[in-house]
Design a protein around this nucleic acid. Sequence first.
DNA 1: CCCGACACAAATGC
DNA 2: AGCATTTGTGTCGG
Length: 370
Amino acid sequence: MATSAQRPQPFPAPYSVPSAFLPSFPSYHSGLLSPLSSLHPSSCAQNGPLSGLQFIFPRASRPLLCTPSFSGLPPILPQLQLPNLHAVRVQINAAVSRGLRFESARWLAYRRNYLSITINVVFDIPLSALPTPLPRSRQSVDNHNFSIVLDLRNGTQRVVRVKFFAVTVVAEDEVNGRPVDLIQHTSKRDQGPRRKPVVARIRPTLSDGRLTATPISHPASLGANRLLEDFIPMDRPASAGSTSRNMPTASSASPDYAAGLVDSDQDQLPSFDSLHETAEVVCFERIQFKRATANNGRKNTAQQMFRVVAILYAAVDETECFDGVVSNAEQGTNGIRYLEIQRVATGGIMVRGRSPGHYADRVGGGGMIQ
DNA sequence: CCCGACACAAATGC
DNA sequence: AGCATTTGTGTCGG
């Protein structure tokens, strides 16, 4: 096949899946307005006639959002609560808004193609727990009003103040849960550095009188026009510190940085640009699976599958975690410990390692995108 | 078969 | 319209 062959359509392909296979979109089962509707000014959300499936159409009439559903796993300690001891329930809404195809009854990705993953978090706060008078719409809710109950090894509990919340995205083997690396490129792609997706700080806000708090994210992850600056750790103000040490490579950065455990936000109010001032989602763009699933298309072998996981963390002072029973936590910078509050995950995704043409005439492997 | 690297070219943006 | 950028993917060697 000549290299000059017509270029196949990029993902996502025109969507023509038998309705029996249509993936559901339960990420927004709460009935709230989809936060993804504000993803792009020129896009418009459209709740299609197909049950549960939501499309967002960009300029071209091609489905932009075609995502596997994320479902919650059993709640994980520690329990979030407010100062008055009201429990706070959390809902993570996530989508792989680019880069996957639903084909032959399963989700399909290519290792070298970009994924975009969007995460939104809704805090369900009891009416009685809201401050009076009600804060104005979109007013920030102080993170310090949240705390978590940490179980200690001696059987007692400790209430730990939440310094802030954060979300991130990871991947894992669907069967054994072993981690699978995700990598994030700059717009320079192969020429630029790669890193794991950051742990992006979010901030709860009351939104439009709803009795929920929706975190507003700094446009932390790599947006369309965000290049190398985004790879600079932001756990201190960009203006402060050294003169914007340019483009640290993965090796020159701190261990936390290399691990993706870098706050992508600062303590003060984020300065939103006009495109993001109403953003209620964190967008991780230019994400790739670092490796493909094993035995793709092989007969008589176990087809490995990966899944994408969106995680909400409560960041606390690590000294307060002493003797705590913590099932899932990550160490951050500056004495921060990220305690996992909740996670949602997709089902299995097949990740192909070679170019689509290689799989074109494979039985069960699907064809080229038309 | 997978993976990183390089390269080309279509799509997209300015 | 023309140029630059972005990104899907063909190819090659390990």
